[in-house]
Amino acid sequence: MTVSKETKKTDETILRIEHLVKRFGELEVLKDINLEVKRGEVVVIIGASGSGKSTLLRCVNFLEKAQKGKIYINEKRVKNSEKQLNKVRQELGMVFQHFNLFPHMTVIQNVMEGMVQVKKIPKDKARTYADQLLAQVGLEDKADVYPAMLSGGQKQRVAIARALAMEPKVMLFDEPTSALDPELVGEVLSVMTDLAKKGMTMLVVTHEMWFAKEVADRVIFMDEGIILEEAPPEVMFEAPKEERTLAFLKQVLPQ
């Protein structure tokens, strides 16, 4: 299965990270990270565990507070104030490794929650849009089911719909398939691929090299808290410049 890669990427910078530094105590997890993402671009971050890729993603929507650095959304600096963060987070959809669906709410309630409680959209309108989103991720028949009754792949698709409900400008995926049984990975990646085709800007941390190869516009290799190398996938996977990148790719790609 190959994906036609018509690039919807524009020149408009939607996310810019400048000189980001994050420490956990003595440990410097992110060391001066600089990154720009254009509207419509799919950027995949790869790297060994502990390289700081998840932390980077979590710093972008301030689930982790970085010690230094600036983050711009649409060229507007994001300040670390609760009020502004609540706004900014609506523009950054987050998908977690462990789904984090709300277990006390049905699938449709999960998707509607942000629209109704945060965006104050009337319930009937929210319901209509939530139904559309569930159809988009192929779960229209699960609307009234509780998350406990779903498979991991279904849960993650609901989580994607929940994030999309806020109509974000950028979607952040934090290892979205790492907690899934192998046979369920495909359904989640295919939803993500659809989303990429529709022109969604995506920043994805993943170990699925297939996805990086086929869907990414740009692949970033992180190593020990820095961006060691970044390149289009065909370059990154065929002719990486750095030795560490090559070593990592040799480990994860079956030859």
Partner: peptide, 18 residues
Amino acid sequence: IDIGQMEAARSIGMPMGK
């Protein structure tokens, strides 16, 4: 309650109290 629940709530823009 798993910390991920609070993170998921905050990630859709919910204030702490809500």
